[in-house]
Design a protein around this nucleic acid. Structure first.
Lengths: 165, 165
DNA sequence: GTCTTTCCCGACCTTCTCGGTAGGATTAGG
DNA sequence: CCTAATCCTACCGAGAAGGTCGGGAAAGAC
């Protein structure tokens, strides 16, 4: 398996926030409400949302009637940023270190060009896998997921199942 | 991180075998030789190669001067098959179960359509990620990696780096 | 017919992360 | 001041990752 429940819960949390809209609308959602809606442990969600806040993806209001809201519009939140915030560096293998200098190139660095001359050929493979993951994450925005959840929510049988779409 | 060292070591092992050719050439390589060449623990490699054998990717000859060889030509070995043999089911999240009926479609099944109506919207995200990983693995064959390793091995400085070739 | 080299196989062991809990401190509304 | 919420740090059990150990069993070498 590739991702932990931090990613799963964190994304579900963001989707719940996305249903309420972003900063412009002012309404905040308490973690308790999200924990109840998604059947997730509150104390664990606290640690997850802290990562999202540190990454600047959500904002918080403390005190009574406080809660969280999206820091930007859901259409401006791409999933690669979310997953990195939740899981840390995105790398298919331990020896891969992604240095965040440029933004377009992956810039993977493998450091066990072991003893004799030849570098590890697995580098080619992991680079491709990383590319596949990154592109699929970058291509997905939060509001896509929000809309997907609302479609599945409101009318589960209305339109034809878009499996091949 | 996404894959374990089983995948890393197993792929390196296959590359070593790929350097010697497949069944047609008859030459086998002992695990000891591979362990020495790649600086990997022999006892651990034994358990890894057992998975590859069970998956029908390598063949073995026992006894003195025995060893392993590829069961098919390296160009016929795709990395998705290799990784599944080494790591087990390929799934980005615990709740994803890939049932091996058809071969073309991913066929992911998420089973926590929790309590009230709406299904988890993360399904859309994980499906895309899985697709990205699968396509990048399917697009890579073992002999690509073998040739990549030989290029890096024999002449690290001779000809201009054929990155775009 | 041993001997030795290899593959084969299961039990064990250590370390680390995952997933989660406990218990508080801080801030704000009523 | 009391309550509802965010914040913060420490702790903890289970399970997997990564690897070791020891003993087979086959098949060629001598």
């Amino acid at each position: 398996m590739m991702f932990t429940t931090k990613a799963e819960y964190g994304v579900r949390l963001l989707i719940e926030l996305g249903r309420q809209g972003s900063e412009s609308e002012g309404s905040v959602v308490s973690l308790k409400a999200i924990a109840d809606a998604e059947l997730l442990p509150l104390a664990y969600l606290e640690r997850i949302v802290a990562k999202l806040k540190k990454a600047g993806l959500v904002e918080s209001t403390r005190g009574a009637h406080g809660g969280y809201r999206l820091a930007r519009d859901a259409s401006q939140i791409r999933m690669d940023e979310v997953i990195i915030a939740l899981e840390g560096q995105l790398a298919p293998m331990t020896c891969f270190v992604d240095e965040p200098d440029g933004d377009a190139e992956p810039r993977v660095v493998c450091h066990h060009n072991h003893t004799d001359g030849h570098a590890c050929a697995t580098k080619l493979l992991w680079t491709r896998v990383l590319g596949g993951v990154q592109s699929s994450l970058q291509a997905t925005t939060l509001d896509e997921l929000v809309r997907f959840s609302q479609r599945a929510d409101v009318e589960p049988t209305s339109d034809a199942a878009p499996t091949a779409a």
